[in-house]
Simulated scan of single mutants.
Amino acid sequence: MTFPERFSNLPDYAFPRLRKLLDVHEPGGDPIAMTIGEPRHAFPDWIGDMIAENLSGFGKYPENDGKLSLLTAQADWLARRYGVSLAPDRNILALNGTREGLYNACMALCPERKNGQQPIVLTPNPFYQVYAVAALSVGAEAVYLPATAETGELPDFTAIDPAILDRTAIAYICSPANPQGAVASEAYWETLITLAEQHDFKIFADECYCEIYRDAPPPGALQVAHRLGADPERVMVFHSLSKRSNLPGLRSGFCAGGPESIARMKQLRAYSGSPLPMPLQAVAERVWADEDHVVENRDLYRAKYEIADQIFADVSGYAGPEAGFFLWLPVPDGEAATLKLWRETGVRVLPGAYLAREVDGVTPGHDRIRVAMVAEQQEMRRGLMTLRRALYDV
């Protein structure tokens, strides 16, 4: 199958779909954007000065894999956060945002055949859309695993047919989960890693929301894999400054994993990658080393959790997120609710089905809307109160 044929039935990305749904209608009030997960809290105020101090770096080609001091700062952060010790030059690759890494890891590491058959890439459903496109790009079969209230909002890997697991090359998993805010426990990671060892597949752990949480820090996949003594190539983790530090435009992330996996990703990066400019690498190095602004940011989100819990406390089916900054609200029909909100109030949210695929006639998230709690508190409270009156107080 050619590349265009693979993508011929691919639905539009979530936000173009949303624009087609809403933009032919006038908003019913002052627009309040609660769709995209673009943090709007303040980032550290010294960042501008750092860019200015390193302006000369724009006159040089960036170091392709990330300069050693940046990789060391990222390794030091992993050691502080998860107690995992990694070699910066062998176990970490700096990324231009995690989406690049989540895609290219599949390109670099998915085999053409697994046990003599077409490989399978497992993905949660709903999910971050790059997982499925990566699977299509390498000619793998994407298998969508329901991540619903019945499964604890995370995929139940133990329910998969062993024959499917034997064909599996890669399993994507997001914890804390987008959009549900569920957190994989240490026991959950143990089960998944054990299955991956038994059936010889890799785990790509998307952990970009790991620093926004209510109570205890979410455990990490590498943390558990190291404790279990798993194959060093078994788990690849992906992290970003976008949510942790309110810097989505900096495009600084990294992946960490076994030296063979990282070497193969570096080889692909040498031909097709998009490294971070040197002044921005200098900024990222300092941001990864600073925790004060992260604690302040987390406190702001904890206050938002409390606001949401107060507003939706008596709404049937409401469950506040364990982590991350999305609400995953129950409605009879997500697309109809989204259109109603926009036309009657100007509040803009995302239908849950736009983040999912239909499997056996069922689309997880069709009865949900995703609401991003990224605006400042007063605007967020106004948006949530307006949403509640329009959808639940009827």
Results as ranks from 00 to 15, higher is better:
residue 127 F to H: 11
residue 108 A to L: 04
residue 104 N to R: 14
residue 114 K to T: 12
residue 133 V to W: 15
residue 132 A to Q: 15
residue 114 K to R: 14
residue 124 P to I: 03
residue 105 A to Y: 00
residue 101 G to C: 09
residue 97 G to P: 07
residue 115 N to M: 01
residue 116 G to A: 12
residue 100 E to T: 15
residue 131 Y to C: 00
residue 108 A to N: 07
residue 97 G to N: 08
residue 99 R to C: 09
residue 123 T to K: 06
residue 135 A to G: 09
residue 121 V to L: 15
residue 146 P to K: 12
residue 140 A to D: 08
residue 146 P to C: 11
residue 125 N to R: 00
residue 130 V to L: 05
residue 100 E to M: 14
residue 144 Y to P: 02
residue 145 L to K: 03
residue 121 V to T: 12
residue 117 Q to L: 14
residue 101 G to V: 00
residue 126 P to N: 09
residue 127 F to T: 08
residue 146 P to I: 11
residue 121 V to P: 04
residue 129 Q to K: 11
residue 128 Y to Q: 13
residue 120 I to A: 02
residue 127 F to I: 06
residue 133 V to I: 14
residue 135 A to C: 05
residue 99 R to I: 09
residue 102 L to W: 02
residue 133 V to H: 15
residue 133 V to C: 13
residue 139 G to S: 12
residue 124 P to W: 05
residue 145 L to N: 02
residue 110 C to R: 11
residue 105 A to I: 09
residue 119 P to E: 01
residue 111 P to K: 00
residue 142 A to V: 10
residue 112 E to Y: 09
residue 137 S to Y: 02
residue 108 A to S: 01
residue 128 Y to M: 13
residue 120 I to E: 05
residue 113 R to L: 13
residue 109 L to G: 02
residue 102 L to Y: 02
residue 116 G to N: 08
residue 108 A to F: 02
residue 116 G to S: 03
residue 116 G to H: 01
residue 101 G to S: 01
residue 138 V to H: 08
residue 124 P to Q: 04
residue 134 A to Y: 04
residue 117 Q to M: 12
residue 141 E to A: 12
residue 105 A to R: 10
residue 134 A to D: 11
residue 131 Y to R: 00
residue 128 Y to D: 12
residue 110 C to K: 02
residue 100 E to C: 13
residue 129 Q to F: 11
residue 123 T to V: 04
residue 97 G to Y: 05
residue 132 A to E: 15
residue 134 A to R: 01
residue 112 E to P: 08
residue 144 Y to K: 09
residue 109 L to I: 07
residue 122 L to K: 03
residue 105 A to T: 07
residue 135 A to F: 04
residue 131 Y to V: 09
residue 110 C to T: 05
residue 111 P to C: 07
residue 138 V to E: 09
residue 99 R to N: 13
residue 128 Y to R: 13
residue 109 L to N: 11
residue 134 A to F: 06
residue 112 E to A: 13
residue 121 V to N: 05
residue 103 Y to E: 10
residue 97 G to E: 10
residue 133 V to K: 15
residue 118 Q to R: 15
residue 136 L to M: 12
residue 137 S to F: 00
residue 146 P to A: 13
residue 113 R to E: 09
residue 146 P to F: 10
residue 138 V to W: 05
residue 113 R to Y: 09
residue 141 E to M: 11
residue 105 A to D: 08
residue 143 V to K: 06
residue 122 L to Y: 05
residue 117 Q to H: 15
residue 143 V to Y: 07
residue 132 A to M: 14
residue 141 E to F: 06
residue 120 I to F: 06
residue 120 I to L: 04
residue 112 E to W: 04
residue 115 N to S: 10
residue 122 L to C: 08
residue 98 T to M: 02
residue 134 A to G: 00
residue 106 C to M: 13
residue 140 A to I: 11
residue 118 Q to F: 04
residue 121 V to A: 13
residue 109 L to D: 04
residue 104 N to D: 14
residue 145 L to P: 02
residue 127 F to K: 01
residue 142 A to T: 03
residue 116 G to C: 06
residue 105 A to K: 07
residue 107 M to R: 14
residue 129 Q to E: 15
residue 105 A to F: 04
residue 110 C to W: 02
residue 99 R to Y: 05
